[in-house]
Every structure is written in structure tokens, then in C-alpha cells.
Design a protein around this nucleic acid. Structure first.
Length: 624
DNA sequence: TTAGGGTTAG
């Protein structure tokens, strides 16, 4: 008790009506408890409560305990609980809720069980609190409890049940529970939308969202994030613009979702807009938002800004480092990535598996085979991190790019039990790069023999055949692909002009400025001819004549994006292009040359990495 | 009491 007694720093607003002799009114104390925002204030009130012999007051005790929980001090809450004789349902519920919101799911469940053992009957509050903290299996059992105790139709309980089933992937069941609710409200709708969005069923989510009468910041966040996390970042950005026209004010969660979308589409201007919005709307940028900004700037090609945000974050955790190292990696700045990794280790920040993905991919882009192996081994031996398939992917990629195909093949084969199609794809991609037909065929044979071949296998082998001019082989693979119903993902490039992202497919005629774009393409061809450029027609993976091949290359999506960038920005402006697939060798050469001819910096992000083209040279050193 | 949130190979 002595630790509580001196009320030294009790602020005046709390002491005004409280002298040593005067007992404070319980209802006033109750109000103070509910209003206290910091643990310090709460402890002071608690002290005063004990000093005045009110420590057994049921309502005050309950409120104190609840406040401890919500301020993240669950242990104090438990202490208080343990000192309470025969706690009632409210007490138990507050405790369960406190554990649940602080992520202590198992303990929450244990208190629930204890409550049942003590014959304290749960109420609707209890059930909805505990449902939030449970897995699908436990949720099913709790569903029975809800039924038994008669709360199955309670709005809160029902909403929590919808959440549990949706989280567990039982989306149809969740929908049925949702449809049979006595009343739908903003939260239950948002819960259902979240369920669809997390499951990747974003179109269903959108239908419900569009039908909402009222939307708050959370419902907007859920739908925007749903698009952002499921490969539809453009739609996320469109919705965000719609949100700005409403009265609903975006919050940090909105910013995180939108920054992710900006990064994916390479929308630097939109990302910068968010950054300034943040600077003006919040006092300081927290670690999470900072990380998202670093990621956005890196993916939008602006490493300087990424670094600036990085330097401005005071308490850098490992995730912040991971984002920055990953940024250096995709830009091919291998040494900077490794240096930062060293710096972070030196500062005592322990790397995670994600950190190693970042540094290993940095090594792959720089062709640093021995450094990569050393890091891979250090990860296992020094840091005790078990390599995942992603790490093997990095190593296979590193070896494959460097031409050590057999070694890479052995490594993948040694892991054939949990063979990952991506790993095989990486390896086959390396075979294409080095035109190693025999190993490619050997791999495909191996995969077919073990029943591991999939549609992608044929695509890759067909690419190897095409790269070596084996058109019979290509035709065979195309036929097999047709049979298995696969299609190659179409190449798509985008460029951001005036805060708007313009997308192009190969040979695209849909853009309103198509006339000007194609005129520019012609002009570009003229420049290339003047510089004696010869098309690298072997980059065309179809068996057609040379002239047709050249024509095919000329309308590749990245060229259309480049042409549009050239006609819609001032001379000297950097052009930033984002492509969904890897850039082809011919386009790479053309873009380099155009950077010299137009004296513009051209930055292109392809599926793998960034290419900064300046004065005819590319930052990747033609190694990609 | 009910909803959302940072980094991840090719």
C-alpha cells in the first residue's frame, strides 16, 4: 500500500475537491477514471481511492480495472481481479476484453473457462469479447454457447460470429449469419465487407460497400485496403479520391493502404501528396507510417526521399530497416543495402527472415555470389533463422543469374519434397537467360515425371525454345499450354502524368491521345535509325518474319508509355515507367538510347527491379 | 463491448 500513498504529483484538476479529510464522491471518481487517458493519471486516482478506503467499491474497482486493460496494463488489471472476492460477470468480461484487445488471446480464453467453472454465466458482452480473440475451432464451440445462453441473435454477438467464420474462410456461412441478422448496422456491414475483402472476394465486398447508406472511416479503409492488397491498386486510388470528396476524414490506416497502392502502381505524385497531407495533419510521423512512406518512395523510384524519411524516424525498428534495405535492393544498390545491414547489426537491431530476403536479393542484383552464400549461412548459423523457400529462391536466382545453373539445379532438387513452382520457375528463367536448352528440358522432364509440372512450366520452356530459335519446340509447348488452358499474363506499362496513372498494353489504341503517341513512336524510330540502332529481334518469342518482329517490338507497352511520357512532360523531366513483367532486351536497349538522345533520365521499374537510364547507360549494368 | 493498419525472392 505504501507505494501508492504519497499523492505527490496529483494534478490540480484531480485534487480540487479532495482534501485529506474529505471523502471524494464515488460518482466523481468514476468520472475521473473514465476520463483518464494516461497510466500515470490512472495510478494517481487509484492511489487516492485506496487512501480513502474505497478500494472495495465494486463499481470503482471495475472501472479502474477496465481502464488498466484498455491502457495496455493488463497485469494491473489481473492483480486487481485477483484481489476481488467472487467477481461478477462484468468483472470477468472486462478482464476477458482487456486480454482480447491486447492480443493475449489464450489468456482471454482461460479466463472465460474459469468463469464458466465458477458458475458465472456469460452475457452477450462476454461472448462478443471472447469471440474476437478466438480461432475458428473455438469459435464454433462458442457459437454453441451463444445459442445455449440465448445470445445468438444479439447484434454484437452475431457480428462477432460473422467475423469468426469469415476469418476462418467460411465466407458463405458468415454471409448466411449476416443475412439473417435482426438488424444490420454500420459495423456488421463493415465486418461482412472485411470478410469478403480479406478472402480476396473484393467484388462482393464492393457490392455491399456500394449499398451502404452510411460509411465511416473504417468502412472506407476496409474497401480501399482490400483493393490495395489484392492486386488492384488503381481502384484503391480511385476510391480514395472519392473518399476525399465525402465528409469522412482519412486516418493513418487510410494512409497506409493508399501508400501501399501508390507504391504498387508507382504513383509518386499521389504518394507525395499523401506525405504532405500527413505532415500537415499529424504532429509526427510514426514508425508504421514511416515504413509505408519508405516503401512507397522506393517503389516509386525516389530513393532520396525514402532515405530522408528513414533518417527522420527516431526509433527505427527492424521493419523500418527491412523496408530501406529492400529499397536499395530493388534499385540495385547492393553496397548500400549491405552497408545498412551492417549498420543495423552494429546498432543491435536483430535481423529477421525478411531482412535476409532483402540482403540476398540485393546480392542477386549485384551478382555477388560468395557474399550471398556467406549471408545465407550466417542467417542459419549465427542468427538461427531457418531458411524459407523465399531464401532458397534468392539463392537460386543469385546462382542462376550468375550462370551457375547446375549448382542451382542441385539445390532445388535437394528440396524437391516441398518443391515450390516459383523456385522451379526461377531456375527455368535462368535457363532462358543463359539459353541452356538441355538443362531446361531436363528440368521439365523431372517435373513432369513427378507430377509437378504446371502451366507455367510450359510457358518457361517455350521461352527457352523461342530464345534459341527452336520454333518446333515453341509450337509443341503452345499446344500443350492451349490444352491446359493457360495464357501468358499480358505485358502492361504505366506512367504517371499530372497525378494520373496512364496504362498501356502492347499495341494499345485505347488512349485518347493515341494519335500523338503513335506519331511520337514514329519519331523515336527515326532517332533510333539515325543512331544506327538495330532491333534485337531475337527478343520476340514468336515465329514470325523479321519485319513483323520489329513491328511487334515497336509497340511494346513500355514504348507506348515512354512515348506518352515524352509528349506529355516538359523537356528534361524524368520519365518514370512501371511494367508488370520483366523488360525485354530490345526495349531495354531502346530506352537507354532514348535517354541519351532526349537527354532525359528514364526510370523504369519492371517486375524485378529498377532501371535508371541516364545518357545511354543503365544502373543495372545490363545485368538483370 | 462491435471494424482497419508498416517490410517479404522471381
Amino acid at each position: 500500500m505504501s507505494s501508492f500513498s504519497p499523492v505527490v504529483a496529483l494534478p490540480t484538476q484531480f485534487t480540487a475537491n479532495t482534501t485529506e479529510n474529505q471523502r471524494p464522491q464515488p460518482d466523481k471518481l468514476a468520472l475521473l477514471i473514465d476520463k483518464s487517458k494516461t497510466i500515470k493519471h490512472l495510478r494517481q486516482i487509484h492511489a487516492s481511492l485506496i487512501r480513502h478506503g474505497l478500494e472495495s467499491h465494486p463499481v470503482l474497482n471495475f472501472k479502474i480495472q477496465r481502464s488498466y486493460s484498455s491502457l495496455g496494463h493488463v497485469e494491473d488489471s489481473v492483480t486487481l481481479f485477483n484481489r476481488t472476492q467472487s467477481p461478477n460477470v462484468f468483472f470477468y468480461t472486462a478482464l476477458i476484453h482487456g486480454h482480447a484487445i491486447n492480443g493475449l488471446h489464450e489468456q482471454a480464453l482461460l479466463f472465460y473457462v474459469r468463469m464458466l467453472i465458477e458458475n458465472v454465466e456469460p452475457n452477450a458482452f462476454t461472448l462478443s469479447s471472447i469471440l474476437k480473440a478466438c480461432t475458428l475451432e473455438v469459435g464454433k464451440a462458442l457459437h454453441c454457447h451463444a445459442h445455449k445462453f440465448g445470445f445468438e441473435s444479439d447484434t454484437y454477438v452475431r457480428t462477432a460470429l460473422v467475423d469468426v467464420y469469415a476469418r476462418g474462410g467460411y465466407i458463405v456461412l458468415a454471409r448466411r449469419l449476416f443475412d439473417t441478422m435482426l438488424e444490420r448496422n454500420l459495423v456488421s456491414l463493415t465486418t461482412m465487407i472485411t470478410g469478403y475483402a480479406k478472402n480476396g472476394n473484393i467484388d462482393e465486398a464492393r457490392i455491399l460497400f456500394d449499398g451502404m447508406e452510411k460509411r465511416d472511416v473504417v468502412s472506407w479503409n476496409v474497401i480501399i485496403d482490400g483493393y490495395a492488397q489484392h492486386g488492384r491498386p488503381n481502384e484503391a486510388l480511385i476510391l480514395f479520391r472519392q473518399m476525399l470528396k465525402t465528409r469522412v476524414k482519412p486516418d493513418e490506416a487510410t494512409m497506409l493502404a493508399v501508400l501501399s497502392a501508390c507504391g504498387q502502381v508507382g504513383a509518386l505524385e499521389s504518394g507525395q501528396w499523401i506525405h504532405s497531407y500527413l505532415r500537415y495533419s499529424v504532429n509526427s510521423i510514426n514508425t508504421q507510417v514511416g515504413t509505408a512512406l519508405i516503401d512507397m518512395y522506393s517503389k516509386c523510384g525516389s530513393l532520396e526521399n525514402a532515405r530522408m524519411v528513414f533518417d527522420g524516424i527516431e526509433d527505427k525498428d527492424v521493419v523500418v530497416y527491412n523496408a530501406m534495405i529492400g529499397g536499395y535492393a530493388i534499385h540495385g544498390l547492393t553496397q548500400d543495402a549491405l552497408k545498412l545491414f551492417e549498420e543495423m547489426s552494429w546498432l543491435g537491431v536483430r535481423p529477421t527472415d525478411v531482412t535476409f530476403i532483402a540482403v540476398l536479393s540485393a546480392c542477386a542484383h549485384g551478382g555477388l555470389v560468395s557474399e550471398g552464400w556467406a549471408l545465407f549461412n550466417a542467417m542459419k548459423d549465427e542468427y538461427g533463422i531457418r531458411p524459407k523457400v523465399e531464401h532458397y529462391g534468392c539463392i537460386v536466382n543469385l546462382l542462376g543469374r550468375a550462370g551457375q545453373l547446375e549448382e542451382a539445379y542441385e539445390l532445388v532438387k535437394s528440396r524437391a519434397i516441398d518443391a515450390d513452382p516459383v523456385l522451379w520457375g526461377t531456375l527455368l528463367g535462368a535457363c532462358t537467360l543463359h539459353k541452356n536448352v538441355s538443362l531446361g528440358e531436363k528440368i521439365v522432364e523431372f517435373l513432369v515425371g513427378r507430377g509437378l509440372a504446371n502451366s507455367g512450366t510450359y510457358v518457361l520452356l517455350s521461352n527457352i525454345y523461342a530464345a534459341t530459335g527452336n520454333w518446333d519446340g515453341v509450337a509443341r509447348m503452345r499446344a500443350m499450354m492451349k490444352q491446359s488452358g493457360v495464357q501468358k499474363e499480358p505485358g502492361c506499362s504505366s506512367v504517371e502524368v499530372n497525378n494520373e496513372v496512364h496504362e498501356f498494353l502492347a499495341g494499345d489504341m485505347k488512349h485518347p491521345k493515341r494519335k500523338e503517341i503513335y506519331e511520337m513512336l514514329e519519331k523515336m524510330n527515326g532517332w533510333l535509325d539515325d543512331h544506327g540502332y538495330i532491333s534485337q529481334t531475337e527478343a520476340v518469342l514468336h515465329n514470325i518474319g523479321e519485319v513483323d518482329k520489329k513491328r511487334t517490338l515497336e509497340v511494346h507497352s513500355e514504348r507506348l508509355a515512354l512515348a506518352f511520357g515524352l509528349i506529355s512532360t516538359k523537356p528534361g523531366t524524368t520519365i518514370k515507367i512501371v511494367k508488370n513483367l520483366r523488360v525485354c532486351t530490345d526495349c531495354h536497349a531502346v530506352i537507354k538510347l532514348i535517354s541519351r538522345i532526349t537527354r532525359r533520365k528514364i526510370v523504369m521499374r519492371d517486375r524485378n527491379r529498377f532501371h535508371h537510364c541516364v545518357d545511354g547507360l543503365c544502373s543495372c549494368g545490363d545485368y538483370w
